[in-house]
Nucleic acid binder design. Structure first.
Lengths: 157, 157
DNA sequence: CGCAATTCAATTGCGCACAACTAAGTGACG
DNA sequence: CGTCACTTAGTTGTGCGCAATTGAATTGCG
């Protein structure tokens, strides 16, 4: 055999995706601690980031930025609305669309969120260049995986 | 000002953790496709990997390998048991512990799983060295994040 | 105009992740 | 021996992620 035994592959496999999965969940743990003061979960924080950056926008656009669909966003946005951070209202010009916009309280929360990134960066133990490099690699990986998602059977050997 | 405006930090922040989160979910999509034939979800597949490698072991040990607790594993293992892949039985020597072991069917499934890693590796578009390097970086990141989790204010310089 | 295809948000159902709690078993120590 | 601290699984409740479906609104096309 030119290839190593299957056992090695099964173990290697775990290293790739499992490492990613574990890192993602470890981040979740840190964010849970850091965001506790703000009363946000990590996905809610991501939504707020997009809104702080882009202002009001429909659910669809929000989902495009975050790679999430309405099945995830609808209940999440309801919780943000219940917390008084956003308002949701049907667009006048297109009644299918729902515009999400920050309340005064939601806008104000940004002031308390600005310190979050520094605390997270500190927790990673990485410097800026490493973070950016890792991010770039991961983005390329995501693009490759998404491409495969829609093209599940490339020609085998 | 020696530091850039807060806006930049908020955007950078999104790049680190969001890239990781997105990559993790993109992996989920690929695994969902690849594992469909086996009737496994990705977390269930991870459990099977551990069992294939280590044989029978208690829920506690399983959780240590996978970084998961009983709140996640108990229902997951029930589903694997309902699918006929594992059996769960109280340890005779320590009645607190529940031993998880593969059934014949669970053991047999390994034969059909050996091709999974190659298909996943193909989907990443990365070669072996890149995969290993990325995995190592992520493992270091996870270790740093876990350390921060239990020690939220490490002494700075 | 009238009808079909499409778009958009919401809902439903299922599974995972995690905190908090419960319950049962074990072991050490007085 | 009895009690008390600890360990181990399981359960409950909340929230995320995604597939599939529903229902309303819009667009395109004859």
């Amino acid at each position: 055999m030119s290839t190593p035994p299957a056992t090695d592959w099964l173990r290697l496999d775990q290293q790739i995706c499992f490492s990613l999965n574990a890192a993602s969940r470890a981040f979740g743990g840190v964010y849970r601690v850091v965001l506790k003061d703000l009363g946000l979960t990590y996905p809610q924080y991501l939504v707020m980031l997009v809104l702080w950056e882009h202002g009001e926008l429909p659910v669809k656009r929000l989902g495009e930025h975050l790679r999430l669909d309405s099945g995830t966003l609808s209940p999440l946005l309801k919780r943000l609305e219940a917390a008084g951070l956003v308002r949701r209202e049907r667009s006048a010009r297109d009644e299918r669309s729902v515009e999400v916009r920050l309340t005064g309280e939601g806008t104000a929360l940004r002031e308390r969120a600005v310190e979050v990134p520094r605390r997270i960066a500190a927790a990673t133990g990485l410097d800026l260049a490493e973070i950016q490099d890792l991010g770039a690699r991961l983005d390329r990986l995501t693009a490759a995986l998404d491409a495969y998602d829609t093209d599940p059977a490339p020609a085998p050997s």
